[in-house]
Amino acid sequence: MQQKNYSGYTSYSYLEAGKDYKVFPLSVELNRVPSRRPEVTAEEEARVRRLFQEQLMISLHDHCFVAPEDLSQFMEFRRWGRDFTGYQGLSVSGLDAVFDNLMNGTAMITSRGGWKWDDIVYDLGMRLSDIAHQEMVVHCKTTSDIVNAKKNGQIAFIVSIEGAAMIENELDRLDILYGLGVRCLGIAYSEGNALGGGLKEPRDGGLTTFGRQAVRRMNQLGIAIDVSHSGDQTSLDTIEVSDKPIFITHAGARALWNSNRLKPDDVIRACAAKGGVIGIEAAPHTTLTEKHPKHSLESFMEHFEYCVNLVGIDHVAFGPDVLFGDHVGLHNALTEALSIGASRGHLEYEKVAYVDGIESPAEAFPNIVRWLVKHGYSDADIGKVVGGNVMRVLKAAWYR
């Protein structure tokens, strides 16, 4: 893949470990598990490498932090407020830009429930402080930042937050988040809030009056809108009310797997009809299918092809939602905080220790592109789904 300008920097190395912050041994970033890449010929691999040189590679949703080895200490780890970015892993990911979603619901620095204003601001400031001390990953605020990052061998870091509970009923907090560099915001993260319904609520009343005001303000500011974790009616209302195309940054097709975490055809179609894009999700045990009930790159790509057939190649991208470390173990440790129960379907499936072929940000896009090349997709179509479609929406949704 295109090698980035990585100096060997590790997170918070400008501080003294053990004195300025508590040390938690972290997971390895590369080759943690024997995840397999698609088998391609030497000629196909050469084409993959060329595509990484020529096309913008944008992940619509990830968490590029390194998890601690001992996940029983994860909440204590989080309360220190420091996410350790996987710079080494990112340096070989081939990505030119990534929508990174910080701690989000696990930012529990001041509270046990998460999603508090102070926690989100603390999380955001800490992460950007670390990023400011190195040069490979750059804080992205405009589409030009993405283009320049690729040119300069860097990765554009797009700050995203998965739910808007922390703004409470304060509309101007959206302006503050924008001023702090947030460029993508979800309406609700599973639990309902002042804007609308989340996917785990027993009834989804749709976008509230305040939610409609918030959508309008995000359009005015230039914050891209995400409905990945919103309820179906709230998603449809958001798509209707927004003047700009929106994202479903990380989901899949409920038609293939009956889970509230995935989107029904009418929501996917409505999103595409307004010019929006759905990013296909790969977090463990989400994008399963009856054909591939054991979660892997194959089941993930079955959701991709279903969505392409449903709404066309111009409206699909990839939001793998992966991290560096034991993602399955993390889900087990954070079942309540992350509403894991709401993301499981009612079908029987085989649990996996990791999602084979798409286990971390280091391998996700290289293996996605290998799969696309192996299955005969054209350069133009690959360019659309790995970055072009996302850029088109950003040029419409962002202020600049």
Rank of each mutant, 00 (worst) to 15 (best):
Gly222Lys: 06
Asp266Leu: 09
Leu256Cys: 04
Leu256Phe: 01
Gly275Thr: 13
Ala272Val: 06
Val227Tyr: 08
Ala253Gly: 08
Ile248Thr: 05
Leu256Asp: 01
Ile239Tyr: 00
Arg216His: 11
Ile225Thr: 05
Arg216Trp: 09
Lys294Ala: 11
Ser242Gly: 07
Ile225Tyr: 01
Arg254Asn: 04
Gly222Leu: 09
Ser228Lys: 05
Gly275Val: 07
His303Arg: 03
Ala282Leu: 09
Asp265Cys: 15
Ser228Met: 11
Thr286Asn: 08
Leu288Pro: 00
Glu281Asn: 12
Pro293Lys: 07
Cys271Leu: 07
Thr249Arg: 02
Gly252His: 00
Glu302Gly: 07
Gly279Trp: 04
Thr234Ile: 11
Arg217Tyr: 09
Ala283Val: 15
Ser230His: 13
Arg261Pro: 11
Thr289Trp: 03
Lys263Met: 12
His285Ile: 05
Ile280Phe: 10
Thr249Gly: 03
Val227Ala: 08
Gly252Pro: 15
Ile248Gly: 01
Ser299Trp: 04
Ala214Lys: 04
Ala282Asn: 08
Asn219Phe: 09
Ala253Cys: 08
Glu240Phe: 13
Glu298Lys: 12
Leu262Ala: 05
Ala270Ser: 15
Lys291Asp: 15
Leu297Glu: 04
Arg216Glu: 06
Ala283Asp: 10
Glu290Leu: 14
Leu297Gly: 00
Ser299Asn: 05
Cys271Asn: 01
Ala214Asn: 08
Thr287Pro: 12
His295Glu: 00
Asp266Phe: 09
Lys244Val: 06
Ser259Trp: 00
Thr234Glu: 14
Tyr306Arg: 04
Val227Glu: 10
Asp237Leu: 03
Thr286Gln: 11
Val267Trp: 00
Cys307Asp: 06
Ile278Arg: 02
Thr287Lys: 03
Pro293Thr: 00
Thr238Arg: 11
Thr234Trp: 15
Glu290Pro: 01
Asp237His: 09
Ala270Asn: 04
Pro264Ile: 13
Ala214His: 05
Val241Asp: 12
Val227Asp: 02
Ala270Tyr: 06
His295Cys: 01
Gly231Thr: 02
Ser230Met: 13
His250Asp: 13
Gly231Tyr: 08
Ser259Arg: 10
Gln213Leu: 13
Leu288Met: 09
Ser259Asp: 11
Leu256Val: 02
Glu240Asn: 10
Ser235Thr: 11
Asp226Gly: 05
His229Cys: 10
Glu302Asp: 14
Leu256Arg: 02
Lys294Ile: 12
Ile268Thr: 14
His292Ser: 08
Ile278Thr: 14
Ile268Cys: 06
Arg254Lys: 14
Leu256Lys: 01
Arg254Phe: 04
Arg217Glu: 11
Lys274Thr: 02
Arg269Cys: 12
Met218Ile: 00
Phe300Val: 02
Lys274Trp: 02
Ala255Lys: 09
Thr238Asp: 12
Leu288Ile: 02
Ile223His: 01
Cys307Ser: 12
Pro293Ala: 02
Ala253Ile: 10
Gly252Phe: 00
Asn258Cys: 13
Pro245Lys: 13
Ser228Arg: 07
His250Ile: 12
Asp232Glu: 12
Glu298Val: 15
Ile278Glu: 07
Gln233Trp: 03
His250Ala: 10
Gln233Tyr: 08
Leu236Lys: 11
Val308Leu: 12
Glu240Trp: 14
Lys274Arg: 15
Thr286Tyr: 03
Lys294Tyr: 01
